[in-house]
Amino acid sequence: MDWNRTKSIFIFVFLILNIFLYYFYLNRYNEAQSVEIPGEKTIEARLKEDNITYGSLPNSNEFVVYITGKVHKFTLTEFTKSNQQANIIGEDDTLVHVDILNPVKLRNDDETSITEFVRANVKDGDSYALWKVDREQRTAIFFQKKGNRMFYYNESALLKVQWNMDNEVTMYEQTMLDNIEEMEKQETVIPPLQIIQTLYNKSLLKPDSHITQMKLGYSTMGYLTQKQVLVPTWEVQVKLDGETEEYFVNASEGNVIEIQENKQEGEEEDWGVE
């Protein structure tokens, strides 16, 4: 008997069997997903009844990965620009306050001008994306990002810029993650409509509201060590009666992420700004 040939035949047969079983499972799964419970309305119908609207939803036919990052410890040697005076704050050296000795004039207080300043004057400025501008307080908040995906309200990955009444930047404060690496396991993105259904089922979407934005980013699982694990996260902005609310949902598991405390810290903490 040719044992090698027999072994090859067995391997081939088992491969065909596995393919058949997977195909059978996939068909059964898709059938189960398409079964509608008699009398139960679809999520689209329920949203329409409550006048909850949304525009074009983003593409969800992709995979995402968890990432890790280490909290950066600043040193004064990183800040060599003659127009900047850096002061590292706190015992752990993870927050830096930088005064602009000769304030830098912005063309306007618009998003483009502020972003241009950050890219030209802030350490690793390209790795931050503008999140919010408060023209009354003359401040802008940036979130660190990987690619085009922001790290939402991560106190270790924030940048705050302030300018004076003459539209001149006078200071900024910064925290940062470095050594950012992707974890090996890939996760399937939960479709946007399913995320909307999750928020609706939790009564977070009110009648007459409009979903203005859905974007993929990252949120942080915890702050227990210098190394953090960041999870893929859907950010959903909802407008109702002129007010905008933000919701965050784990993009691979579907659970709503409560980061209101971090949001308040990012928006209200003065970070030493006067």
Results as ranks from 00 to 15, higher is better:
Glu168Lys: 13
Pro38His: 08
Phe79Tyr: 09
Tyr29Asp: 11
Thr6Asn: 04
Glu136Arg: 09
Gln237Arg: 13
Leu205Arg: 05
Asn121Thr: 06
Glu258Gln: 05
Lys160Leu: 14
Leu17Cys: 12
Glu265Trp: 04
Glu269Asn: 15
Ile67Cys: 01
Thr244Trp: 02
Thr175His: 01
Gln194Phe: 02
Lys185Arg: 07
Val249Met: 06
Phe10Tyr: 12
Gly266Phe: 03
Ala45Leu: 14
Val161Met: 05
Pro38Arg: 10
Ile88Leu: 07
Gln137Glu: 14
Ser203Met: 09
Ile141Asp: 04
Lys206Val: 12
Ile259Lys: 00
Phe74Arg: 04
His210Met: 05
Ser113Phe: 08
Gly254Met: 04
Thr80Asp: 09
Ser34Asn: 15
Leu101His: 06
Lys263Ile: 13
Leu47Ala: 10
Ile9Lys: 07
Ala45Arg: 14
Asn27Val: 08
Leu21Phe: 13
Asp50Ala: 13
Glu62Pro: 00
Lys227Asn: 15
Gly222Asp: 14
Ala157Thr: 04
Lys227Gly: 07
Asn250Leu: 01
Lys160Ser: 02
Asn121Lys: 10
Gly39Ala: 05
Lys145Thr: 01
Asp93Tyr: 13
Asn30Gln: 15
Gly39Glu: 11
Asp110His: 05
Tyr247Gln: 02
Ser252Pro: 03
Pro191Arg: 00
Met150Phe: 03
Phe10Ile: 15
Leu230Gln: 05
Lys48Arg: 11
Ala251Thr: 04
Asp166Phe: 10
Arg5Tyr: 11
Glu111Gly: 08
Glu31Thr: 11
Gly147Trp: 06
Lys263Ala: 07
Trp234Asn: 07
Lys160Trp: 01
Ile211Asp: 02
His210Val: 06
Asn87Glu: 14
Phe248Ile: 08
Phe20Leu: 13
Asn164Lys: 04
Lys132Gln: 12
Pro38Ser: 10
Asn18Asp: 09
Ile11Thr: 13
Asp126Val: 09
Gln84Thr: 04
Met171Ile: 02
Val229Asp: 03
Thr188Trp: 00
Lys263Trp: 02
